[in-house]
Computed example of a mutant assay.
Amino acid sequence: MSSPCSFRELCRKESFTGPTSGILPGYVQANLLIVPRSVASDFEDLCLRNPVACPLLTKTAGSAHVVENHAKFISDSFFDIRRDFPKYNIYLGGKLYQQKSNCMDEWSDDHVGFLIGCSFSFEDALVRAGLVPANVTQGRNVSMFVTTKFLDSAGIFHKCPYVVSMRPYKPSEVDKVRSVTRAFKRTHGEPIDWGFDGAERLGIEDLQKPDYGDPVEMTDDEIPVFWACGVTPQLAITTVGPLIEGFVVGHAPGHMLVLDSTQMF
């Protein structure tokens, strides 16, 4: 694959269905949530009230399946939010119903799609700073954990837990890691906590048993570093699921949309 456009075409043809960490380094990646229009305003408010966990990049326009300010994010005139992610999670009644390589059957004109910033966007900056994430070197999906930290409520979305991604680093590297990722405010920014005491504060009991993604090996001189994660909105859906009628669609954790931009908007 030579460009985001050619990569999205692979996804559209279902030739690529895997995780996107390390894919086309330097380009911005995005998470997805597609909800019925009846709860779209509440979900947008949730994002605006919780910009670190749910940094809203854009949403679909009207009943279209392409995003607002399309050219700002994606130059491909054939872009289709229903097919250009490698893999989708389909929810019904707040429960994971199916995992598919497209959501053509579930999409309707009554849906609104949201693109949300993803921490994969800053992994290349970490690599260039000599801070290669362990999930990249180990060829694994990033580890993601449900925490005991809650989002600020909005509309129907109440008592929704944070999800965090974890990348291990040496304690001496944490300040530099924070500095590198701080600039990426539209894709979660700097870590929200770190260290084994940080894991305890977040309610994470076993770092080798992530709720999403893959376990990542840590060396004895490393500590966990935690970022807010764009899987958080999908957990919000499972939390309030019975209140939402019809299909909700998200990306499969770790399987992102690669945008054409290298900037943080």
Rank of each mutant, 00 (worst) to 15 (best):
A53V: 05
A53Q: 08
C54L: 07
L56I: 05
L56R: 03
L56F: 01
L57I: 11
K59M: 08
T60D: 00
G62R: 06
S63W: 08
V66L: 06
V67I: 13
E68M: 02
E68W: 02
H70D: 07
H70G: 07
A71R: 15
A71L: 13
K72W: 08
F73H: 08
I74Q: 11
S75A: 15
S75P: 10
S75M: 13
D76Q: 05
D76R: 01
F78M: 15
F79R: 00
F79Q: 00
R82K: 06
R83T: 15
R83A: 12
D84W: 01
F85A: 05
F85C: 02
N89W: 13
N89E: 14
I90N: 06
Y91L: 15
L92D: 13
G93E: 01
Y97W: 13
Q99H: 15
M104C: 14
D105P: 06
D105G: 10
E106W: 03
D110G: 11
F114P: 11
L115G: 04
C118N: 00
C118K: 05
F120V: 00
S121Q: 03
E123T: 04
V127R: 13
V127K: 11
A129I: 11
G130C: 07
L131P: 10
V132P: 10
V136T: 05
R140V: 11
N141Q: 14
V142D: 08
S143R: 04
S143K: 01
S143Q: 02
S143M: 00
M144L: 02
F145K: 04
F145W: 03
F145E: 00
V146Q: 04
T148E: 09
F150Q: 13
D152N: 15
A154W: 03
A154R: 04
G155S: 09
F157S: 11
K159C: 15
C160N: 07
P161K: 02
S165N: 13
S165F: 14
R167Q: 10
Y169E: 04
K170Y: 05
